[in-house]
């Protein structure tokens, strides 16, 4: 499986994170997203007319939506990271995968404006990001009252992985996470997973835990 990847892209990190958690090896193809805008060049547009990354290529299969990529990798290598056939779980999983796009456009958008000079209405993006965070906080709080830690069912799933990165990086777009206690507990539970990996701005939980990928070099 080849992942067209950018080290600072939270959407690409979702895929790298799930692959690491499942012990699946990815072949990474680095994309010069900034400053080169390679994702808008001919070669990558031919692969993904939307002009975005991540892109996953696995033989004949080409996937260009992070939610689809997470579902695909889990279906192949980690069925227990997907909702069961229970209608409530299926619905909740799909709900959060779609919700993750709101996080991408709002919190991710604010981050690109603040950090990498991308154009955009910062105040509007931050406001939309805060609205999404409040919704997530309320949902996670309700889950905790029923004894659950994660978004779907009784275990961590791709729904959590899809929502986690842009939430964790909200401060990059000058959106504080201080008001959201349930979100912080949830993020901690994700960071505590065996074979968790970092990206800049998202740190491992225990400072001394070895990097699971360090031995692969």
């Amino acid at each position: 499986m080849i992942l067209y990847d950018y080290i600072l892209s939270p959407s690409c990190y979702k895929v790298r994170l799930l692959a690491s958690l499942l012990g699946v090896k990815l072949e990474l193809r680095a994309v010069d997203f900034h400053p080169g805008r390679e994702h808008k060049g001919d070669e990558l547009l031919a692969l993904n007319p939307a002009g975005s990354i991540p892109i996953l290529v696995d033989g004949e299969d080409v996937l260009t939506e992070s939610a689809a990529i997470l579902s695909y990798i889990a279906a192949k290598h980690g069925q227990n990271w997907l909702a069961t056939s229970d209608a409530g779980e299926v619905g909740a999983q799909q709900q959060w995968l779609s919700f993750s796009h709101r996080l991408t456009s709002a919190l991710g958008g604010a981050r690109l404006v603040e950090m990498l000079h991308f154009p955009g209405d910062l105040a509007a993006l931050q406001e939309a990001g805060i609205a999404a965070l409040r919704e997530l906080e309320a949902a996670l709080f309700a889950r905790r009252l029923t004894g659950q830690t994660f978004l779907v069912g009784d275990r961590i799933t791709i729904a959590d992985i899809a929502c986690f990165p842009y939430v964790a990086l909200a401060p990059d777009g000058s959106v504080s996470l201080d008001p959201y206690a349930s979100i912080r507990i949830w993020m901690r539970a994700i960071r505590a997973q065996p074979r968790f990996i970092e990206m800049p701005g998202i740190h491992r939980l225990h400072e001394l835990a070895p990097d699971p990928l360090a031995g692969d070099a």
């Binding site: 600072l8 680095a30 994309v31 800049p200 701005g201």
Partner: peptide, 19 residues
Amino acid sequence: STITDLIHFQQLIFLQDRS
């Protein structure tokens, strides 16, 4: 290394500093 690999390496490092 490709130029892109070099850019990514340096951006990775610098973004760790940024936070």
